[in-house]
Nucleic acid binder design. Structure first.
Lengths: 348, 348
DNA sequence: TAGGTATATGTGCACGAGAACATATTGAAA
DNA sequence: TTTCAATATGTTCTCGTGCACATATACCTA
């Protein structure tokens, strides 16, 4: 079953050369005659030599340094969990010679994003994990990484053709479908639906679109007619209450509301003060959302485990660096459905 | 922030003794005078010396050997995922000097369980992870472990006061509450509920009880009266259809069925052949269950990620052995709610 | 006090890889 | 053919631990 493990010494003996020469072939450090090179290379390939990581780490002190570039949770609490995921990875892998350095940026300042990525590009990292929430700036960053020969991995925000080795995230379309399905199970035949976009920031707009489309597609497949699905886009927090109440009084058959962003608690608050009973679905485990889930105003929260995303991101990088595995282009994480009763374990 | 890392050599210099002496103090190998011992020990404590794992692994070849004792999925397909979780851990940690040996037993033969654990007890393992599905036999095993000074961790099946260092599992009561909540959201006021236990094996009975209690408690709290909740215990697969159809014709207000075991697909099959439309909730991602989830007969599956349980089990052991962390007594994993729309990612 | 034996302490090697340094081999020009 | 450089190959030391072995003290007895 298990093939024997060869060391440099073994190979040196097999090839009748010295360890140093084998080492040069392994690392392509030149200074090897063609003849010896091919002789050693042949053996190397046949036995699929993998250097002993432990020895490598002991010798080099540090095996790999990984950079993480993500928003600072001081500005957006959503990122706190992702940060924790990175921290977990830091402690988990420190003893094995892998160090991780975190670069946080203000998610409302693309300039700050640039400042941080400059540090990474000019540093001496083996790979970088990034949450590319700024579209244009990220493309520039990627091209700089390619120039520097720095492998990059993305999480949270998917950019098509980014050139990232692996992306770790969730399928937003499916996320919307999940919301649609849950709501459809709970409501009955001629009830009507409302999709709400609470849109402080343009950078989220694609996210919201995808979710809406998934939501619609599910319902339409189930025979809900387009007239039964309403959309409300609010582009300022102060306008929410007015616009929502207007909509609900215009269309009193609306029985379910799907909020595409994490600001669902604002809707919950409004429903609560007006004593309105609707099926309410939102995203993310913000403290406020959890509160309204517990009080029963929010029925479902859909959760894209940011802690796990970040943690898996690091793991993928290590897989790539250490084990040289060609892994998946895209790792899709579960879309978690959260209700009051299964909330606790997700908060741990 | 980061304290400096001391090596044996550093400490030897600080204490004005040789590396060998420090080594003897660290490992308590005797042959050290009281005076030197306390001198070295003092320094050791002050700087909180932790041996370099990498060097240790290089020197010793293997750092730790971990045994896993769990059912063979050839007999019960549920365990396949757990097995995969263990395998993942094996490949993940192999390079770091941690080897894992798996001992599978027939979950219908307690004798086989004993045979396997004997091998572990008489082996040279550093720790063991066990799914203690046989109550009495497990207690014996635990006491043998304690005698042998072998730390043990449990997963999947929780035994109170087992003496395990950590248990990894899900809260079954909460599992039942989750089912109750989901069903209550979907059904309306005077619909009635049915809890089904499909009980091939006594060993599952406690599981099923806990789930039923959680289910009941939730509904009763919501004002559902006890008369609306029916229970059907089936103790032979061949009797399911007869008993179920009898029940449903007796009580035609039953609109939702909660099956406490993973055999929910059998109920789905029956409902399907009789063209009955009920809200159906069950457990576990068996192939058959997934099929009926996809065809819409099963509405929700509640999932206790066995892969993650096993994987986290190994991780806890490593935390304990390598980092000597005193961690939690009990790790509770999320209760995952699965519908057709978010199924895909859980199967990966 | 010499001799011997416990007991205490110090030293050297191995683990496998990496890299600096040392040595050997080639080839071309004088 | 000699000389020198360029290239090719071999050797040795380092990383931190663990353990076997070597050496050094202390203690006891004749």
């Amino acid at each position: 079953m298990n093939r024997p493990v060869y060391t440099l010494k073994d190979i040196a003996e097999l090839a009748q050369v010295s360890r140093g020469t084998v080492d040069r072939v392994v690392h392509g450090r030149g200074k090897v005659s063609k003849k010896t090179y091919s002789k050693v290379k042949l053996i190397l390939d046949k036995i699929d030599y993998k250097p002993n990581l432990v020895a490598q780490t002991l010798r080099k002190g540090v095996l790999y340094e990984i950079a993480v570039l993500m928003p600072d949770y001081q500005y957006e609490i959503y990122w706190k969990r992702a940060f924790e995921g990175v921290n977990k990875a830091i402690t988990d892998y420190a003893s094995f010679g892998i160090t991780i350095q975190t670069f946080l940026f203000n998610p409302y300042e693309s300039l700050n994003f640039k400042q941080q990525y400059e540090k990474i590009v000019s540093g001496k990292f083996s790979a970088v994990l990034v949450a590319p929430i700024f579209y244009k700036e990220s493309l520039v960053f990627f091209s700089k990484c390619r120039d520097a020969g720095l492998p990059y991995f993305t999480f949270n925000t998917y950019l098509e053709d980014s050139g990232a080795i692996t992306h770790i995230g969730v399928d937003l379309f499916q996320n919307g479908k999940t919301a649609g399905s849950l709501m459809h199970k709970v409501l009955s035949g001629d009830d009507e639906y409302l999709v709400m976009h609470i849109n402080e920031e343009l950078k989220n707009s694609r996210h919201m679109q995808e979710k809406e489309q998934g939501f619609n597609q599910y319902l339409v497949n189930k025979g809900v007619v387009a007239d039964q699905i309403h959309v409300l886009t609010v582009d300022g927090i102060e306008k929410i209450e007015g616009q929502l109440m207007q909509k609900l009084s215009d269309v009193d058959k609306i029985k379910g509301i799907f909020v595409t962003t994490s600001k669902v608690w604002m809707v919950a608050k409004i429903l609560h003060t007006h004593a309105l009973d609707k099926v309410l679905i939102g995203s993310d485990l913000l403290e406020e959302n959890v509160h309204y889930l517990n009080t029963g105003i929010i029925d479902f929260l859909i959760f894209q485990n940011p802690l796990l995303q970040a943690n898996l991101g690091i793991q993928s990088i290590i897989d790539h660096l250490v084990f040289k595995n060609k892994i998946h282009d895209r790792i899709l994480l579960p879309i978690e459905i959260i209700i009051k009763e299964n909330l606790r374990e997700f908060q741990a």
